[in-house]
Structure formats: structure tokens, C-alpha cells
Design a protein around this nucleic acid. Structure first.
Lengths: 137, 137
DNA sequence: AATGACGTTTACGTTAACGTAATGCATGTG
DNA sequence: CACATGCATTACGTTAACGTAAACGTCATT
């Protein structure tokens, strides 16, 4: 089985991005699809890389950071020195991610408060009718 | 008590950003410090806003999104219509944040795998000595 | 043969988020 | 007083991450 392949516009549709974006990622060395003549042919591995890139972007990573992150997965790390430095990288990234996770949890807590305030405000705001300025009680 | 105030460079140091950045945020209407003559005087409220901006940025929000987010907290929402639309906003943002939280958790899981691989690899990689290419077993 | 749907390359344009001078005022300090 | 330090304004420069337009190739329909 040769593995399913994708055209550029298939992937663009799937991920809700433009073909320009995909070509741009290639230009930047983020993906390297095969060619069938002139046309690009994307493997499932390419597809996954794009997915990882978009995931990274959602949490505020630059494309360069995304690459770094993705590169951790492929086994180009032979000797102990490289492995050790990779482990250091992993530690750093984990710390960063945990910070961001805290950020998100704080913001979620903030949203909870806002929503609670809104709802009690709605409840006391002349419930039922809601005309003009709601005259002072 | 008039409340503590800060100079621009105090805040810059505290947050590890440049004064240029702080002035830029003002230029964009993200903060509006008082003036003492020519000099800017930052209140604690200003300080908190900066903190919130930086938190937003860490998880990949644009400055505009940060403003939107921060604005949710101040009670400029009077009538029911505004409150309801605010609640809608909150819902959307919560969904987005939850997505990003999932993204982060997935990435953390990925890091766990990578680290595990590294460590087993280190363990079997001729433990103790580590010279040249470690001849095939 | 023309139309349209897809693909390609090349190249200039755009926006966000600052960086980096250059220049000037005010204040303290040896 | 000369000089350094801190803050200010004005304005041009820069980088990332694409957008957008032009101009062309290739099939399958019509």
C-alpha cells in the first residue's frame, strides 16, 4: 500500500487554510511534499506536520518554534550528548507549556467570574420586561 | 492613600520588556497612564493591565484580542442586550481557551514520550563509557 | 476552440508588534 | 559648570506570516 496522498487544496480545505499558506510552509522548509511532475503530492506525514504546526500556532508558537518542537520527534539524535541536550530542551519546553497552561486556567477562572457577574446582573435587571433604561427602583 | 505609582522603567524592568513596548501599548490605547508634567505615572491598575496583556500574548492572543479580553472585566455593560452579547463572547472565548488547553496537554504528552525515548536510549547506549560511535553489539 | 477548475511560479504588498536612531528637556552630581 | 541619567517625542526600519495579483500550464467539459 502506497499510503494515501493529498492534493494541496484538499489539505487547505481540511485545515481551513489557504494553499498559499501551505506553499509558504514549504518555502520555509516546514514540509517537503513529493512531486508528481509539477504538482505537489502530500503524504500523511506531511498532513500530520501541518496539523502540528497549526496546533503550535494556536498556543502562540512561532513557525520556527513549531519546527523545533516537531523536530524533537524524529530520531536524528544519535549520541549521548545530543540526547542529553534534547532532554534539556524538553525540560524547558515543558516548563513553558506549564506556564501557558496556568495562564489559560487563570483566564478561564476570570471568565467564570465575568459570566457569574453577568448572570446575577441579568437576574436583578428587571427580570421579564426590559424596556428603555429600567427606571430607578 | 494615593496608591503606589510606577515609572515607565520600573514597569519595564519588572516585566522584562522595554519602555518602547510600554509606550507602544499606550499608543495603541491599551493603557492610559496619568502624567506628572511630561512624565508618565503608572497606577497599579495600569500595571495589572500590562500583566494581563503579557499573559494573553503568551498564549498567542493578539494585542487586539487582549484588549477585548480585558474589557470584559470592566463594567461598561448596562442593559440586558449588552449583557447577553457579553455572555456570548464569554462562551466563545471559553471554547477557544479549552481548545488551546487541550493543545497544550497534547503537546505535554508528546514531550513525555520524547523524554521517555531519550532516557531508555541513554540507558542502553553503552552506559558508563561513551566513546566514538559505540560499536554495534 | 473556448471555458473553467485546478495547479504552478514570481514578485510585490500588508499588518502587527515592536526596534532603533536622533534629538531634546529636566534633574542630580562630582 | 560639565556631564551623566532618565524620560520624552518623532520618525524611519525590521521581521514574521502570510495576502494578492499576474501570467502561465494542463486537463476535462461544453
Amino acid at each position: 500500500m502506497p499510503g494515501k496522498t493529498y492534493t494541496i487544496s484538499e489539505l487547505a480545505r481540511e485545515f481551513g487554510i489557504t494553499t498559499r499558506t501551505i506553499r509558504f510552509y514549504e518555502e520555509k522548509g516546514l514540509i517537503s511534499p513529493l512531486r508528481e511532475g509539477q504538482k505537489r503530492l502530500y503524504s500523511n506525514a506531511d498532513r500530520v506536520r501541518i496539523k502540528l504546526i497549526l496546533r503550535g500556532k494556536r498556543i502562540g508558537m512561532t513557525l520556527a518554534e513549531c519546527v523545533d518542537f516537531i523536530d524533537m520527534y524524529d530520531p536524528a539524535h544519535n549520541n549521548n550528548d545530543q540526547l542529553n541536550s534534547l532532554i534539556e530542551d524538553v525540560k524547558q519546553r515543558r516548563a513553558q507549556l506549564l506556564q501557558r497552561k496556568r495562564d489559560i486556567e487563570d483566564m478561564l477562572a476570570g471568565l467564570d467570574e465575568v459570566q457569574a457577574l453577568c448572570e446575577t446582573s441579568l437576574a436583578t435587571n428587571t427580570p421579564g420586561t426590559d424596556r428603555k433604561k429600567s427606571p430607578g427602583q
